[in-house]
Structures are given as C-alpha cells and as structure tokens.
Design a protein around this nucleic acid. Sequence first.
DNA 1: CGTTGCCTTGACGCCGACGTCAAGGCATAC
DNA 2: GTATGCCTTGACGTCGGCGTCAAGGCAACG
Lengths: 142, 142
Amino acid sequence: MRIGELAARGGTTARAVRYYESLGLLPGRRSGNGYRTYDEDDLRLLRQIRTLQDFGFGLEETRPFVECLRAGHPEGDSCPASLAVYRRKLGELDALIGELTAVRAQVADQLARAERARDELAAEAGVPGGPEPECELGGRAT
Amino acid sequence: MRIGELAARGGTTARAVRYYESLGLLPGRRSGNGYRTYDEDDLRLLRQIRTLQDFGFGLEETRPFVECLRAGHPEGDSCPASLAVYRRKLGELDALIGELTAVRAQVADQLARAERARDELAAEAGVPGGPEPECELGGRAT
DNA sequence: CGTTGCCTTGACGCCGACGTCAAGGCATAC
DNA sequence: GTATGCCTTGACGTCGGCGTCAAGGCAACG
C-alpha cells in the first residue's frame, strides 16, 4: 500500500509517517515510480508507535518497541529494552501524578483561602454599605 | 533596584523579566541612564508570577493576578478573575490527573502482560534448551 | 487531451518560555 | 586609563511533533 492508506489505517497522517521515517522508525522502501510502499508489517510498526504515543510516550521511547518488532518478535514489548521503557515510564507517571496531586491541593487551598478572604471583606463592608468587590479597571464608567 | 537584583530576588533571570515585560506583565520604567528600575511592588508582581508558574500556570493565566495586584488589591487572588483561573485550573488538573492515572494503569497492565509472556516463553524453552531472549541485533557476533 | 487525486521533496511555521550570542553603553574600582 | 561587571537591544536557537504551503511528477478516468 502507499503512504496515504498506511496513514489512514494507522490513524495518522502521511506527514507523520514521513516524519517517523526520517527518525528511522519506519522503513522507506520505494516502488518503481518513487512512491513509498508499505506492507502489513509496516502497519503494525505504525500502530505500535501510535499506541505508545497515545500513552504519552515520546517518539524516541517507541524506538525499542519498533526495533523489537522489526527483529521479528511477536510483540513490540517482547524485548527487555521495551520493558525497561515501560518501567521507566511508570516511574515518571507516578512522579508526575504525585506532583500534580500536590499542586492540585495547593491550588485548592489558595482558592479556599481567597474565597474566605473575599467573604470576610464582604461581610465587613456588607454591614455598612454596598460590597461589590470590583477589580477589573473601569467597572462602570460614570 | 535594577533588573539583575529584581530577577535574583524573584528567583529568576533578567531575560525572563524582560520577557514578562514584553507581555505587559511587568512595567518597564527606566532611570536616567536607560536602565530598567524596579521597586518592591514590582518584586511582588514578579513573585506572584513565579509562584503561579511553579504551579504550572501559563503566563497568560497569571495576568489576572498581576492586574489585580496592580489595581492595588492586597493579594493577586483578591479578584474574581483570579478565582476563576483557580477554578479552571483545578478542573484541568483533575482531568489531567485522571488521564494520567488511567494511562498508568494501562502501562502497568502492558508491563505485566509482557512479563508474563516472557516468562512463559522462558519456561517453554527453558525445559528443552537454553532460553536467553536476545533482542538487540547482533547479540554476539559469531 | 485534460482533470482529478495521490504522490514527491523542501522549507518555513507553530507553540511556550525563555537561553544564548553579538555588539555596544554606562559605572565603578583600581 | 582600563578592566570589570552590569546594563541595553536585536535576533536567532531550543524542544517535539508535526501542519501547511509550494512546485512539480505520476496514474487513472472520461
């Protein structure tokens, strides 16, 4: 098949396929007229790349999987190097999730504190006159 | 103070400060010799930016906080627009953490499955002869 | 024969938040 | 005087993963 069909069946674009080829992830075989030509095995390579991409892997991280498939193994993760990438990624994900969770808590704290401060000011000013905590410049042009 | 001191006290670089100025986040007052000059209020602006940056906020997301401070409010989050950014960020963080957690589970599954497959192959081949699941091309050049 | 559609290479654009280098001005220390 | 160190503007580089446009070739359909 040609690049358009490969891309469509792999759920991506011809441009991306050429890019993967430029990185050495996909082969660049040509048929007589100069068009790139692919077979079902190439489609498996592409699908392996896309799956890992969807997981948030960088393209370089997909290389061990692709080379594993190219070496004739049944799955991209049949090789130790691929398993190592999985494990490293798990660690990175855990670290990232941990950081994000901590940030989330801090932001929630800030929000709660700011809302409390706002309400206190509102109550304080609400007893005498009108509150309306305007902030954006030029509330209503008088 | 001048830009170098401001940057140092704000925990960033002069280059970053100029960049923030180019976005209109920081003022660009000059003293007689053309040097940028800053006061303690500017330092507070910068620190507000840095704090939010550390939370993973984009620079545009810090703008409401900065404008709030510039409008004379005691805190950057004393304004409704800032609270809105907090809330939006909380939603984004929750969504992101959820996605990452799902991905983490999938990767863990893949790893477990691949290790199982490897062990089964090892047991299968281990009974007759030698296992050694080589993958990288050219294991030992014979 | 022309049109349409897929293909080719090459090259620049994009996003965000700066880093880094170049060439030069100002100010202080020695 | 000059060496040092901070400052100025301007402009290009970085990272990742492509998008998009330009200019042209090949193939099939009518």
